[in-house]
Computed example of a mutant assay.
Amino acid sequence: MTTLLHNRIEAGQLLASRLTGYANCPDGIVLALPRGGVPVAFEIARKLRLPLDVCLVRKLGVPGHKELAMGAIAPNDVTIVNRDVVNWLHISPETIEQVAEQEKKELARRDRAYRGNRPYPEIRDRTVILVDDGIATGATMRAAIAALRQQHPKEIVVAVPVAAPSVCQELRTEVDKLICLRKPEPLHSISLWYEDFSQTTDEEVRDLLERAERELMVMK
């Protein structure tokens, strides 16, 4: 039986212990998928003494069933479509475009809310540890990977607490390394594998990003 993770903090600490080879990496950076990925990534960045930032991606939820991803978008017009879901539910291109336009507005809002006036970090030739609190369909993570690839990083390492085994297998071909703590089959829902999966707020995201920046400056 798969042991439940207590919360995102514990998940980040456990992942950090699997990533010690990246500690103090001179070109390393930890990027979190907000919002739930940020508390996980904060623990990793703190343990490895690496800078922390966010990688903004938005899931494209099926109208009426928003938890079901028909795709995802990322900055620079990156769009990933989950063809299995789209074909199964006979979703039109117009519907996908309509939802994508709504989510682009939310991407812009989150960028202002989380980053403020801080510029997006330089990614070229850097080692990126990409973190979320779990992977269900993989659409959101694929959009994040595609957006990062456009910026030519040296290495992309995906680190997640829980994901479906089949999704892990597929994603391994798209990144340099993938670390996953729990691979339950069937997954059903990411929240089932945490004792505490309470929602992360915008305020928590901002606070953790600011704390990470302060702590890194003290360490230096």
Rank of each mutant, 00 (worst) to 15 (best):
D207S: 15
Y194F: 12
G21I: 00
R109V: 01
R83F: 00
V86S: 10
R83E: 14
H65D: 14
E203P: 02
P75L: 11
E67L: 02
L5G: 11
I129P: 09
I135V: 14
R124D: 02
E103T: 09
E43V: 01
K177G: 00
L15E: 06
A45M: 03
R110T: 03
R115P: 10
D53E: 15
I135Q: 02
L178K: 06
K183R: 15
E122I: 15
R211L: 14
I96Y: 12
R8K: 04
R126Y: 10
E43R: 12
V54Y: 06
A23C: 05
K59L: 11
R115I: 02
A72K: 06
T3Y: 01
H6T: 08
L107Y: 06
F42T: 06
V38L: 07
E155F: 13
I29N: 06
P39G: 08
G61N: 08
E103V: 01
Y114G: 07
K104Q: 12
R214W: 08
V54G: 10
Y120L: 14
I9Q: 12
Q199D: 13
L216S: 04
L33H: 11
D202I: 01
E210G: 07
E67G: 13
L33D: 03
G138K: 11
A147D: 13
E106S: 05
G36P: 07
P165L: 12
K220Q: 13
H6E: 14
I44L: 07
N82S: 04
C168W: 04
T140M: 06
P165F: 11
V157Y: 06
V62R: 09
Q102Y: 06
L192E: 13
L209D: 05
R46K: 15
N87D: 15
P75V: 11
A113F: 02
E185H: 14
K105E: 11
E203S: 14
V157E: 03
E101G: 00
T79E: 13
L14A: 05
L56N: 05
V40T: 11
L171P: 09
K104P: 00
L208N: 10
I44F: 07
S166D: 15
L216P: 02
P165V: 12
V85W: 09
R172N: 08
G64D: 05
I96P: 03
P39R: 08
V157K: 07
P39D: 07
P186G: 10
G28I: 04
C168P: 03
V160D: 03
